[in-house]
Design a protein around this nucleic acid. Structure first.
Lengths: 256, 256
DNA sequence: GATGGTCTATTGGTCAGACCTAAGTTACCA
DNA sequence: TGGTAACTTAGGTCTGACCAATAGACCATC
């Protein structure tokens, strides 16, 4: 009987419940209204003190809600008269920062980064060859010039490298790919900058490949673009990983 | 003379400066320390009042900083005794929410989403064919069974669909690709669920393609996997975009 | 001895009110 | 007319108080 009772009582199951915070409630409300397009871009939200009287919440609560939306890229906050919270559509920057955080936070292996680039970038090149504008080409040419300067520092080379790769992504005119490639390129930059990954030979080869891919993009030749980009990122990855392997081996050997 | 003086004085050039907010300074400091691994997962940060005395900032400033980190997925905050801010590594969830925000903000066309999947997923399939384990295959098989159930609801079909695609990414054993595909799949799910994108024909074709790709992955045949996945996601994208185009056209026509 | 109530200490959540700082607007004076 | 001082509006920060959630200890009841 007691057993039956126990069984009956624990038979009632409830899911863990969430009790939302006041600031979350306000943030959610505003977020929905922004995303459904009720507030258009650059619409100023009411001033904080006005929101306080409207919502009957305290100013700190209102401010926390606004801070949430700011971090999510949904509003931009300006101080001073005629300042306030202005509605913004979250852009590729939001994607970029969150991807960067994941890459940095999860200590993603360099190999995984390079693999991911191998996945994404050939496709970017293909789209770029289809949709590139004259302005896109200018960016690529400028980066190519900077890369060709063999006298430049490693940092300058890597920066120009990032510019070129991001330029290709930009030429794809796909916001999501742009955000991903920006985050990826920067991550690969920082992962390779302190090492002896990059020697003159690698730089020479990269410069050559970039020029040839740029030519395919200019000529609106998607097949060539995807093929060459594939080869380029793959061989670059191989070169870097070879160095990494040698390094990995040499370090434990010293310790042993 | 006065002129010379003026000239001399404006010869000193300064770049426009950014004065960071106190809360940002604290958030940045904590973020760096978390990302560099100084604080390991689940480490509790000091209580707010303790941070107040350490930093000599006010509690509202400290709280805003913590709120920033919380939104970025770097800490998890619990109320009550033994509560506080606990360090977290940002996971794919963070990417997913920001991608969804960008998508919902309509900065991203459904076409861009599908394009991005076309970029990433064939490569995932290729890696999966190389590195899959027996457990990975079990997940894929289970999803395939659920998809084959033609009597299921649309929601069930889409969920099984997501499970399969994420399963392929998981089998690639590349953390970054797993995160990206999880975010992407869910985004595509929500973008297509309320529509008449998915008819029985699409479901049948998807089920067939999944089985055949799964076979290639099981057989450790990267070339077949990449080729079939390419064809699958491309034709799926085409089917969805055709529906979208018809819809786009029909709506203005009704208004005119 | 399992169940539930009560108390207490700790910690985040919210509130109210003050003052500081940034940045447009306006008015006034040289 | 042009510069600048004063005013106004807005976010940024600070202080101090109280509320609410939670964990743990102890106790009462059946």
């Amino acid at each position: 009987m007691a057993d039956a009772l126990k069984k009956d009582r624990s038979a009632i199951r409830l899911a863990p419940m969430e009790v939302p915070k006041a600031s979350d409630v306000l943030a959610n409300e505003l977020r929905e209204r922004i995303l459904t397009g009720e507030f258009t871009e650059d619409t100023p939200l009411p001033p904080e003190r006005e929101l306080v009287t409207q919502t009957r919440m305290s100013r700190s609560t209102v401010r926390e809600a606004l801070r949430i939306l700011e971090v999510q890229g949904l509003v931009r906050i300006k101080a001073g008269r005629a300042g306030g919270a202005f509605v913004q559509r979250p852009s590729k920057d939001a994607v970029e920062t969150s991807v960067s955080l994941v890459i940095r936070g999860q200590q993603i292996r360099l190999a995984a980064l390079l693999e991911t680039r191998e996945a994404i970038e050939p496709f970017c090149a293909q789209l770029a060859a289809r949709y590139r504008t004259e302005d896109d080409l200018k960016v690529l040419d400028a980066a190519n010039e900077a890369i060709a300067d063999t006298g430049s520092t490693l940092a300058a080379f890597l920066q120009a490298n990032v510019d070129w790769h991001v330029g290709v992504a930009t030429a794809s005119h796909n916001e999501l790919l742009i955000g991903l490639m920006t985050a990826l390129s920067r991550a690969i930059y920082t992962a390779t900058e302190n090492e002896r990954f990059i020697n003159d030979e690698v730089r020479r080869l990269a410069a050559k490949a970039h020029v040839s891919i740029t030519r395919a993009i200019r000529a609106r030749d998607p097949e060539a673009a995807v093929r060459r980009m594939n080869r380029h990122v793959h061989s670059y990855a191989q070169a870097v990983l070879e160095v990494e392997e040698r390094t990995e081996i040499s370090v434990p050997n010293n310790g042993a």
